[in-house]
Design a protein around this nucleic acid. Structure first.
Length: 211
DNA sequence: CCAGACGTTGTT
DNA sequence: GTCTGG
DNA sequence: CCAGACGTTGTT
DNA sequence: GTCTGG
């Protein structure tokens, strides 16, 4: 799964890495270690068809939810069932996003001695997770939330876990964001475990900052 | 019909 | 043990 | 995901 | 909102 990730790249770094994304009004620098319910930097297609960066609270709150708290348990959406789950299927059809990151954290070992690992590209370039977003609440109380799609672990990751976030290639960025005709085959193809061989797994020795 | 859930993961 | 907050 | 709380009441 | 269980 993916219950914690990092974003340490500056907005300038991200603009250089993803020239097709508009970073209008995004000035805040990312803060490193990101936990559920915090703001994450993401990308969506706007009404004017631009591809723009924006902030979402991490933990998708379905529009019909009575309480914002439900988002805490909606931080991930399984790729295998995303089409049918009531909490995700509407967002899957209409509101897909990219979550910007430069690594994610997984733990190994037993409860008392859990060890965190950082997983990133070997060259440390930023990565994008497939995500869904949702709008909840009314008027001044509107909250926009998102979730990260997970899939089965690839070879490298299976040393640590059996699940991992869906890491999209640049080729798939627009295809994922374009929600119009959903071609199931295309989507299934995009939601596969990352197939590159350049993921670097590094143990984290220092205490995890709490953010 | 109404009431209640709607999610993922790891651990014991 | 289980929920909440970050 | 992990860390930390987990309760009620009345009085200052 | 929409489905499931009773």
């Amino acid at each position: 799964m993916c219950g914690r990730f990092t974003l340490s790249a500056t907005v300038d770094d991200l603009m250089a890495a993803f020239p097709m994304i508009r970073f209008a009004n995004i000035e805040t620098s990312p803060r490193g270690n990101i936990c559920p319910t915090q703001q994450v930097l993401a990308v969506r297609r706007t009404e004017t068809d631009a591809i723009s960066a924006c902030w979402f609270r991490w933990g998708l709150v379905p529009f019909w939810a009575k309480d914002l708290k439900i988002g805490a348990s909606m931080i991930n959406a399984r790729a295998e069932t995303i089409i049918e789950k009531p909490a995700f299927r509407t967002a899957f059809k209409k509101r897909r996003c990219l979550v910007l990151a430069d690594g994610f954290i997984e733990w190994t070992g037993e409860k008392k001695a859990r060890k965190p690992w950082n997983i990133a590209f070997a060259d440390r370039r930023p990565m994008t997770f497939a995500g869904l977003w949702e709008r909840w609440g009314e008027a001044e109380n509107v909250v926009e939330t998102c979730t990260i799609v997970t899939t089965t672990a690839n070879d490298a990751m299976s040393k640590l876990h059996d699940r991992m976030p869906v890491i999209l290639t640049e080729r798939d960025h627009e295809r994922w964001l374009d929600c119009s005709p959903c071609e199931p085959a295309l989507l299934t193809e995009m939601l596969q475990p990352y197939s590159g061989s350049d993921l670097a797994l590094s143990p984290i020795e220092t205490a995890l900052p709490k953010a």
